[in-house]
Amino acid sequence: MFKKNFLIIALQAVVISAFIMIAAGSGENLSSDQAYDAGHKIGEGIGTLMNN
């Protein structure tokens, strides 16, 4: 009984981990240009806030 419960928990842990990995892997891989643009926009936003 204990062995069965342990197996179920282990299997469930594997399933949840796999789905978390799929979710993490579906994140957008920004290109260097996009990363530069994003950084530039954040910089502009901070600059605007400081000026105000």
């Binding site: 419960n5 469930q12 399933v15 949840i16």
Partner: peptide
């Protein structure tokens, strides 16, 4: 897909299993 996989575990007993099913359903 995640919810469908949970149908294998949802009827199993044990608090840890129930907790993990809850975690899986609320995961997103």
């Amino acid at each position: 897909s995640l919810l469908l996989v949970q149908t294998f575990f949802i009827e199993e007993k044990g608090w840890l299993n129930r907790f993990l099913v809850g975690v899986a359903i609320s995961l997103p």
